[in-house]
Amino acid sequence: MFELPVTTIEGPEIFVIEFGDIVNYFTVYTAALFTFALLFTILVIISRPERQVDIAFGGDAFYTKDVTPAQMKFQRFMALACGLATLGAMMSGDVFNFTLFTSMVGITNIGIVAAYKYKHVLNAAFQYGIVAMIATVPLFGSAAIILATTGTLSMWELFGSTIAVPLIAKIFLVLGVMGEGMAPFYVAKAEITRAPGAPYVLMIHVSSLLLFLRVVEIVISM
């Protein structure tokens, strides 16, 4: 019953999960992204955080930046939630649902970073959080414009050739994902990743990378 109209970009669908109006699906392309996200989520569950060592120049002194168990537990929870949100965004078959999972990735990224007590990291988390917040305007705006002009949110209909999605909605969608995933704003990420706790912090990069790959697929197909 459900069949993707365009298979040149992402390959034929592998299987379809129906949740009422929201019909999620896997294609060769999204299944690959999904597997990658899943692998990284499992990696986050089983790994222990990395500890950084600061060496004082001109002497033998060094400081180890310790990660407390409470902080580690919280970060692992956030990284896990981030992984699940990424999984959700990868398999989503509905534009609004995709935007919701994207903003969940954004907020979990704030959470991973906010666990630190260093002021410069908190400042980066704050500035990034502001961007993530205002990014919901183009994100939801794009879904709303798509719904108003085409009368549907389901990607199964939107990917068809009979429905033309306005260009501005597509640009808004990309802009929104940019804001939530922070892909081009590596300034903030550099500040963020100066903090210890490697596998959890890397989840930020992985999630935004995957989100970007997915949104490109959506925008091209629409």
């Binding site: 009422g20 929870f77 949100a85 903003s103």
Partner: peptide
Amino acid sequence: TRGLDTVAETSILFVAFAI
């Protein structure tokens, strides 16, 4: 019909609350 939206929404709220 759009139950998955609300699942994502409550999860967002839950995560924000945890933070």
